[in-house]
């Protein structure tokens, strides 16, 4: 006969509810169960927040380090390399040709990165395979002309962050399943946004469009 049964027998006048409450109180295994549950919860939580992003995203280094800060200082402004063409299309990341406007076959500095640049790309006349942090999925059409000075007059920091102040190129992270840059989904696994450039999903575009134009846009406005 168990302790519980004794108690129940001795005190048969109390209601069923009180008995159950008592049963729970008397159960010494309960404490261990709670602790086990908490441990399991912490393990799963830590696993999903710390381990999952590591599994989901592969890390890729840029071909060599690029100093945006120095280049903005030397070239004067962003438009020296990233500009709109006359047909309204955006030049994007400059080709080797644009680099060579300044780097005329000889290094301008003495950093290791410049050595890589000259030996591997300039000398071999090979385009630099940059990983593009802000690259959107293939189905997305993005009009720079519609957002910068010619259109909505947005500052490029709003989407790209303070990139002109960076001296090193950070590691590029690619989603192993979709092949998209991590900058699209955002750094924070819960999708919490601190800055306007933390994340560039469809909902982020739609939110801004809704606020600025009163309409989140028809599909083809941003899709192709």
């Amino acid at each position: 006969m168990s302790e519980l049964e004794n108690k129940a027998k001795n005190d048969s006048t109390i209601s069923a509810g009180e008995k159950i409450a008592q049963k729970i109180k008397d159960d010494k295994g309960l404490g261990q169960g709670v602790i086990l549950f908490i441990i399991a919860f912490v393990v799963c939580f830590a696993g999903s927040t710390l381990l999952f992003p590591k599994l989901l995203y592969s890390k890729k280094e840029q071909p060599f380090n690029f100093d945006h800060y120095l280049h903005v200082y030397e070239a004067g402004d962003c438009e020296a390399c990233h500009y709109l063409r006359e047909d309204g299309s955006f030049s994007g990341i400059p080709k080797l040709e644009t680099c060579m406007e300044c780097h005329v076959e000889e290094p301008l500095g003495v950093t290791d990165d410049e050595v890589v640049f000259v030996k591997e790309y300039l000398a071999k006349d090979k385009e630099i395979p940059w990983h593009v942090y802000a690259k959107q999925p293939d189905c997305v059409f993005f009009s720079h002309a519609g957002h910068i000075d010619t259109g909505a007059r947005m500052d490029f920091n709003e989407c790209h962050g303070p990139i002109e102040e960076t001296k090193t190129s950070r590691t590029y992270e690619e989603n192993r399943i979709t092949g998209y840059s991590r900058d699209i989904w955002g750094k924070n696994i819960f999708g919490i946004k601190k800055n306007s450039w933390d994340r560039m999903k469809m909902d982020d575009c739609a939110k801004c469009h809704k606020e600025e134009t009163g309409h989140q846009g028809y599909c083809f406005q941003c899709h192709k």
Binding site: L84, D87, S143, T150
Partner: peptide
């Protein structure tokens, strides 16, 4: 068929560039 919508997108970009969107 999308009525070659990408050509509309390109034309709109051009219109933006020339200031008459």
């Amino acid at each position: 068929c999308s009525f070659c919508y990408h050509r509309y997108q390109a034309a709109r970009d051009k219109a933006y560039y020339h200031g008459d969107k």
